[in-house]
Amino acid sequence: MRQNPSFTMTDAAELRRVIDENPWVTIVSDTEAGLVASHYAVLLDPTREDLTIVGHVGRPDDLIHGLGEAEILVVVQGPHGYISPGWYGDGPAVPTWNFVSVHLRGVPEILSAEENLAVLDRLVDRFEGSMPQPRRMWEAPNDDEFVRRLEKGTVGFRLTPTHVTAKRKLSQNRPDEVVDTIIDRLDAGDSPYADPRLADEMRRAHDAIRAARS
């Protein structure tokens, strides 16, 4: 991802927030057979305060990626969307795409079976927790044998990134009044490109910019 100083994200707390709120990631490996990409959910490692993530892949994706043997790239895609030139006013303009993205690179550590079970349990709790009647991993009708057989079909990993590239391209190069108009259009819901999550990211970024000015 090409970096631009105007759009760079470096604040660790903000990076952790983006990862936590967007856990469905793309994992990319450069293998002897060529580039390989897979899609899985990850979580921040609760024992760390940095950008370490934990997750799993299903077998045989571990072999396809050469997991644990070489560097992987994990792409975290935050809110993103089309920005119409009609939202800029009457002057000459072209469309663009606003987005938030974090790239994590490093060699992952393979987890033990028990560590992997703990990660799988946390993943289930994370996403089942908001359900009216959550189905926890260890609760009936699942039993211990079923859960452990399930674990054997997966490979858990922990990635402490050695390279991080993060970008927040959210109309930082536009005047305040144009930014406010874009946020209103994204919030309004009266176009096919309305996206309140992207509006919230823009609001968050520009509130920080405005606070730094004053």
Results as ranks from 00 to 15, higher is better:
M1A: 12
Q3R: 14
P5C: 01
S6A: 11
T8Q: 12
T10R: 13
A12R: 14
L15G: 04
R16V: 08
I19H: 09
D20V: 07
N22S: 09
W24S: 13
T26C: 10
D30C: 08
D30Q: 13
T31R: 11
T31N: 12
A33E: 14
G34F: 09
V36E: 11
S38K: 07
S38I: 13
L44H: 06
D45V: 06
T47N: 11
T47S: 12
E49F: 07
T52G: 11
V54P: 13
G55I: 09
R59F: 05
D61F: 02
D62F: 01
D62Y: 09
L63C: 08
H65F: 09
G66P: 01
G66E: 10
L67A: 12
A70G: 13
V75F: 10
Q77L: 03
H80N: 13
G81K: 08
Y82C: 05
Y82P: 07
I83W: 05
S84P: 08
P85L: 00
Y88R: 00
Y88W: 00
G89H: 03
G89P: 07
G89F: 06
V94N: 05
V94Y: 04
V94F: 06
P95I: 01
W97A: 08
N98Y: 02
N98L: 04
F99Q: 02
V100M: 03
V102Y: 00
H103C: 08
G106E: 06
P108E: 03
E109H: 13
I110Y: 10
L111H: 08
L111W: 09
L111E: 06
S112V: 02
A113P: 10
A113C: 12
A113Y: 12
E114A: 11
E114R: 01
E115F: 04
N116L: 11
N116D: 12
A118N: 03
A118I: 00
A118S: 05
D121E: 15
D121S: 11
V124L: 05
D125S: 15
F127W: 15
F127K: 08
E128M: 11
E128Y: 06
G129L: 07
G129A: 11
G129T: 08
S130T: 15
R135W: 15
R136W: 15
M137T: 02
A140R: 08
A140S: 12
P141L: 05
D143H: 00
F146N: 04
V147C: 00
L150A: 11
L150S: 06
G153M: 03
G153V: 01
F157W: 07
R158S: 14
P161N: 07
T165I: 14
A166H: 08
K169S: 03
L170F: 03
S171C: 14
S171P: 09
Q172I: 04
R174M: 04
D176R: 15
E177R: 01
V178S: 04
V178I: 06
V179E: 01
D180E: 15
D180F: 01
I182V: 15
D184Y: 07
D184P: 02
A188L: 04
D190K: 07
S191A: 15
Y193T: 14
Y193A: 12
Y193E: 14
A194L: 06
A194I: 02
A194Y: 00
P196E: 11
P196Q: 11
M202K: 04
R204D: 05
A211G: 10
A212H: 05
R213T: 12
